[in-house]
């Protein structure tokens, strides 16, 4: 499994165009949907922590996912830590090689009309990838189960709507970190009130 995991992250790196959110769609497809190494809920937790931690989201998510996948497979924490680091290395390995090859051709490359056109198509496709990642996360793992705890589902939908609107509406962008801190605090408050 260790090598399959690394191979997955090599693939994820090579096909990530358009930034961190696009990479989330690829990680989710490989690690949650295709191989089932981590659950959808674990994936949502990993993304939350990765967004709040400094550093590139892609690096954070790859490292944390690698760690969680190996722990889930019953490895010792040390093996899992090494796996986390190697997943990070794997996710950037092929892009770095490509970058080094392209740096010398930089001007010729980006002025090419076909390259520019293809990048425009890719930007549009990536929107679909990110939408799919969000849709796939909607479910009892992230929003709670209606039959077990309807209050949590109502609460989750309210948090979703609030964060969604607050990240789109204001002219001056609110950092996702603050939105996540607020959502975490709301969860803590809600859970504590509901339990008493």
């Amino acid at each position: 499994m260790f090598f399959t995991l690394l191979f997955s992250f090599l693939k994820i790196g090579l096909f990530t165009f358009g930034g961190g959110y696009a990479m989330l769609a690829l990680i989710q497809d490989e690690v949650v949907v295709k191989h089932g190494w981590i659950t959808s809920q674990e994936f949502a937790d990993i993304v939350a922590v990765s967004q709040m931690t400094p550093g590139p989201v892609g690096i954070n998510t790859a490292t944390y996912t690698g760690y969680t996948a190996m722990i889930g497979a019953g490895s010792s924490p040390w093996v899992a830590v090494v796996a986390g680091v190697l997943c990070s290395v794997a996710v950037v390995a092929l892009p770095v090689v490509l970058m080094l090859l392209m740096v010398r051709l930089i001007d010729k490359f980006y002025d090419n009309a076909t390259v520019r056109y293809t990048l425009r198509v890719l930007r549009m496709v990536v929107i679909g990838l990110i939408a799919a990642a969000a849709i796939r996360l909607v479910g009892p793992e992230s929003f709670g189960s209606w039959s077990e705890n309807p209050l949590q589902v109502v609460f989750s939908v309210a948090v979703f709507a609030a964060v969604f609107l607050l990240s789109l509406l204001p002219k001056k962008r609110i950092s996702p970190i603050y939105l996540l801190i607020a959502a975490g605090a709301a969860g803590l408050l809600m859970g504590t009130i509901a339990n008493n």
Binding site: D45, A48, I130, V157, P176, G187, M190
Partner: peptide, 24 residues
């Protein structure tokens, strides 16, 4: 306590992934 915090974080994460769809 940690579980409660994450119950708030999860729907927020879904919203944070959905929002860029419209910005992009």
């Amino acid at each position: 306590w940690v579980a409660r915090v994450f119950n708030g974080l999860r729907p927020a994460v879904v919203a944070l992934i959905a929002a860029p769809v419209f910005q992009l």
